[in-house]
Computed example of a mutant assay.
Amino acid sequence: MIGQRLHLAAGFHVSERDWIIQRLAALEPRLRSFRDEQVDLEISLKDRDGVGQRVTLECWIRRNTRLHLVSTSSAPELAVALNEVRNGLIRQIDDAKTRTEPRNNRALRHPHTAPNAE
């Protein structure tokens, strides 16, 4: 899924695509609960090898409401930055799933019995 849904934006070379997909592979299990067409990923790199280098990984998930998740890293080593944005996005996806699953969200659960009004 990642390879099909990932768009390389500014800063990355097409020749790095496979390496980037391998670095982001741990996202795959988190995204499996969504259909391929529901997910779009984009990764960009600003100021490559510069003091202000910044990697940004964005994820759009189309569900009842559209989620837009963003993870960034300013780690100077590109491999470390990719790991950081991947891990940040994993946390955000896990948080979003937790908030929207009825068993984890009291407001979404249906009460088994109505409380007495006395």
Rank of each mutant, 00 (worst) to 15 (best):
H68R: 13
V55G: 03
T98V: 15
T65L: 13
C59T: 09
D95K: 15
L89M: 07
E84H: 10
R86L: 09
V70S: 04
V70E: 11
D95L: 15
T72N: 10
W60P: 00
L57H: 01
K97E: 15
R63I: 06
R99F: 12
C59W: 04
D95N: 14
H68W: 06
E58G: 11
Q53D: 02
K97N: 12
V51C: 09
P76F: 11
L57A: 05
H68T: 07
V55T: 03
E58D: 10
V85C: 01
D49Q: 11
L82N: 04
D95W: 15
P76E: 14
R63Y: 01
A81I: 01
L57M: 07
L69N: 05
I61A: 03
D95Y: 15
L89R: 06
N64W: 04
D47R: 11
N83W: 02
S74G: 05
T72G: 06
Q92L: 13
R63L: 11
V70I: 14
A96H: 12
V51I: 14
S73W: 05
L82M: 12
W60I: 12
E77M: 10
D49L: 06
N64T: 10
L57T: 08
D49S: 05
G88D: 01
P76A: 14
K97P: 00
H68N: 10
L57I: 02
R62H: 10
N87C: 02
H68E: 10
A96I: 10
R54Y: 03
A96E: 13
H68F: 08
Q53C: 00
N87D: 15
D47K: 07
V51M: 14
T100D: 15
V85Y: 06
T72I: 07
V70N: 05
R54N: 09
R91I: 08
Q92G: 06
L69R: 07
I61P: 06
L89S: 09
T56W: 03
R91C: 10
E77K: 11
E84K: 09
V85Q: 00
D49A: 13
D94Q: 11
D95S: 15
Q53M: 12
D47Y: 02
G52I: 05
P76N: 13
N87Q: 10
E77G: 02
I93H: 07
C59P: 13
A79C: 00
L69M: 13
K97G: 10
H68C: 07
L82R: 09
G52Y: 15
T72S: 09
A79W: 10
R86P: 04
V55I: 01
G50H: 03
E84I: 05
Q92P: 04
A79H: 10
G52H: 11
I61L: 03
E77R: 14
N64H: 08
G52A: 13
S74N: 14
R86V: 00
N87P: 04
L67Q: 02
R86Q: 09
T56Y: 00
L82G: 06
N83P: 00
G50I: 03
A75W: 05
K97Y: 02
R86S: 07
Q92M: 12
V70T: 11
V51H: 13
D94I: 13
N83L: 05
W60D: 08
I90G: 05
L69A: 06
L82S: 01
